[in-house]
Amino acid sequence: MYDLIELTTTRHNPHIDPFMSMWEWQIPLYLFLGGIVAGMMIISGYFIFSHRYKETDCACFSTPLISLILISLGMFFLFLDLSHKLYVWRLYTTFKISSPMSWGAWILLLVYPALILNLLIKPPAILQERIKNLANISLKITSHPFLVKVIGIANMLLGLMLGAYTGILLSVMGSRPLWNSSLLWFLFLVSGLSTAAAFVHLFAKNKYESELLAKADNGLLTLELFVIFMFLIGLLSSAKPHKDAAELLLTGPFAPSFWVLVVLMGILIPLFIQLLAVNHKIKHTPVAPIFVIIGGIILRFIIVEAGQYSHWFNAHLK
């Protein structure tokens, strides 16, 4: 071990030196929106699959339209991030198995028809007023229970793929030690599900569903804590660059925002509030779901920024 290692470079490429900051706000916001839509597709798919669409006030009637809006917004952010925008169509001239971004492009293309079919099961009134034929189409779909089940399954599967891919997109980067964990996809999937459960809980009218979502969110938040713990343990027990990457969150420059905004405000406080609510000690409050959603956004920002900050070279410099 040397007492001194000093590297001086003449390179000063924008957004690369001294630390990588290529991906800015657009990517974490897209990852968050992708995650929450994935979660809503799984929740909505499950409600449809379990025949809840026969209820008059199922949350699964409003989630597809919201999901379509949010995923389009996410894709718009993704588009904003591209620096060679006019060539975006090149994504759809090939499929590359080694590139999760290529998977994502095609998954997103499949997400739209699945969401539209989900929407057609019972289109929101606002759409029915504008498009007269929608009621007929809806009737045709619901008269085939098997088809409805298939739509539910398709939404759950595509939600799973979308949620997992947002994490895999980062975890394949061996160059960024913080991202290079095989648990990142699971962390993003669980976080996506948890934020989606919180979000749907905010507007769910059906009492059974509202209660179910709050309980599910408690389970998901607990699971998320466990996954974060395992994610950090995995990094800490790995090579030095990975250890240094974990330190960025544990005690380094990202520690205050990670502990306060993600762990405490995004997980522990809402978990405590919702545990009281599901045990009927206090009334359901929008505070907990809002905290969960904000925590989910900040988690993506921290992982993207700290991941870019983590580096093999930094390990040499320490």
């Binding site: 990588m20 991906w23 160059s175």
Partner: peptide, 25 residues
């Protein structure tokens, strides 16, 4: 002519040897 400027390759290089040209690629 195939590059969309997604920056994934820039992120994937452990040597930080790539950059985004002002023309976008």
């Amino acid at each position: 002519d195939l590059c969309i400027g997604c920056k994934a390759c820039v992120e994937a290089c452990p040597y930080d040897a790539r950059y985004i040209h002002p023309d976008g690629y």
